[in-house]
Computed example of a mutant assay.
Amino acid sequence: MKKRIRVGAVTIGQAPRVDITGDIRPMLAPHIELIEYGALDPFSFEEASTRFAPGEGESVLVSRMRDGRQVTMSEGAVIPLVQDCILRAEKEGAEATVLLCTGKFPEFTHSKLLITPQPILHALVQKLALDKPIGLFVPDASQIAQVEEWFSASGIAFEPVVASPYKEAELMGQRALAFRGKDLAFVLLDCMGYGCGMKEDIYASCQLPVILPRTYIARLLNELFA
């Protein structure tokens, strides 16, 4: 029997993220145990929405509260809370920690393996796209400007579609029609909130390959620890 591996799973919203783990836990090797931590666990929806609301010009992050509601936050306000979760996960025995967010973050303090999805996904997209633009789903229109900055820094051209995985899950296929017939390499769903069912609807609608971050990261965990 393989040694049990504890992996800290840090959401910038509230734990548990049953919407994410419902897709990825069945994919993980039986000895990989996800322990969830939420940056907003100590706060109510009203507290988080007020206390961490993004100001003008600040980078915007979108996540989910425990009851399913979408919450919009300033990246800068969330960073110390995420750092606390990483250190707590390691203190409680995590051999690796994964951030359940595709946003851009600064370097965090950590002593064990830390998986930050954004640079991994950008490197993947950069190599696979072969100078073609990609289709890109983002949760909120307020994120378009920062996403343009992040992707241009990686040399990735994209056509965006806005659809919140927390508010508009049933509209994914409809929004993906914007990509039909276009010369795009594939579609990236740029939020951990997008799920397997949404991916299927998007593929059925536009007939382009679709990269889903949550399942990609789950496969990476298997590669590392299975």
Results as ranks from 00 to 15, higher is better:
D183L: 10
E75P: 00
K112F: 13
D190G: 04
R69H: 12
P30K: 14
G68I: 12
A141K: 10
A163C: 15
G181V: 02
P26G: 04
R17N: 00
E36R: 03
L130H: 15
V60P: 00
G13R: 00
K104E: 15
L87H: 13
G197R: 07
K112C: 10
E107C: 14
T102G: 08
K199I: 11
Q207H: 13
H31Y: 11
K167C: 11
L189K: 03
G68M: 04
A169V: 01
P26T: 06
L188R: 07
Q83C: 10
Q14E: 00
D131A: 13
L220V: 11
F179W: 05
K104F: 12
G135S: 08
G22C: 09
P26M: 13
D23I: 04
E168Q: 09
Q70V: 05
I12C: 02
I32D: 11
I5E: 04
G22I: 10
Q83D: 12
P213Q: 08
Y194G: 06
L100I: 06
M198E: 04
L128T: 14
V125G: 09
S152N: 12
R214G: 06
M27H: 13
P26A: 09
A96K: 06
E90F: 10
C196D: 14
P30A: 15
K104T: 14
K2R: 15
Q14K: 04
D140L: 09
Y216H: 15
T21M: 12
L114D: 07
G181Q: 07
I144D: 01
T50V: 04
M192H: 06
E107F: 12
R17T: 00
L130W: 13
V162S: 07
S44D: 04
V10M: 03
S63D: 02
F225Q: 12
I20C: 06
K127S: 13
Q146G: 04
Q143H: 11
E148H: 15
P209Y: 04
F179E: 08
M1D: 11
V78N: 02
S59V: 12
S205E: 03
G103W: 01
A53Q: 01
D201P: 03
S164G: 02
L212A: 09
Q14N: 02
E75I: 08
G193E: 00
C101T: 09
I134W: 06
I79L: 14
I86A: 06
A163P: 03
C206Y: 02
A204C: 05
L28D: 00
A204Y: 08
L136C: 15
